[in-house]
Amino acid sequence: MRNFYLIFKKELKSYFYSPIAYVVITIFLIITGYFFYNIFAAFSTISFQAQMNPGIARQYNLLNITESVVRPLFGNISVIMLLLMPLLTMRLFAEEKRSGTIELLLTYPVRDIEVVMGKFAACVAIFGIMLIFTFIYPVLIKIYGQPELGPIITGYIGLFLMGAAFISFGVFASTLTENQVVAAVLSFGVLLLFWMMGYSLAFAGPGLIGIMSYIALMQHLEGFAKGVIDSGDVIYYLNFIMLCLFLTLRALESKKWRG
């Protein structure tokens, strides 16, 4: 536990020693802010028009502020996460391997699992900080409208779980190579594939559709954004994270045997 904490602290610090954390958090907030502004502005424009002409509301499928602003916002944030998370995770092991520091780290009296969990947790913490900054958007919505609180809270839980799942895969990808770009491309590509799987549901065969809709990362966020915490969704993300961390441990160990 103590070693886990020490590695966690060291990794967290090194995110802030280097410009990575600042750059990623800033870019993340700029893009999400831009999306938030657009979604919100569009909603208010349409709302004004709907006031004049109630037919428009039906035409735009305009329901309420939760459905039209909060849900799309969460959808957008999750896409931006998909783009930025690999940049946070790519260095975790790849850099240690390239610079050789992994040799010292693994000859210190620490277990592999403490190293993996420490690094994973540090990255999740950075991601948590990113998410906390976005709390400003629901606050603004609350000031200018009456959103439901429930879906916002569950939406954040969903985003957090999804981000942690992205990170767990990124950590795994980072152990496979000593090249950070390769690690980033690998984790981005695979996550995108998992993500896109939702799109092919429309033409998948009856046998595949059940499996694919379960595997697709995107499908499991829907419930959270609607205000539903489905234990199946929670278990899906937790399983995904555990599998990736397990693979990370195996990858670290296999490197030892290959020498």
Partner: peptide, 13 residues
């Protein structure tokens, strides 16, 4: 205590 050949250290610390 181990000192590897090319002295790999965390440069950002």
């Amino acid at each position: 205590g181990y000192l590897p050949e090319n002295v790999p250290l965390y440069k950002d610390m």
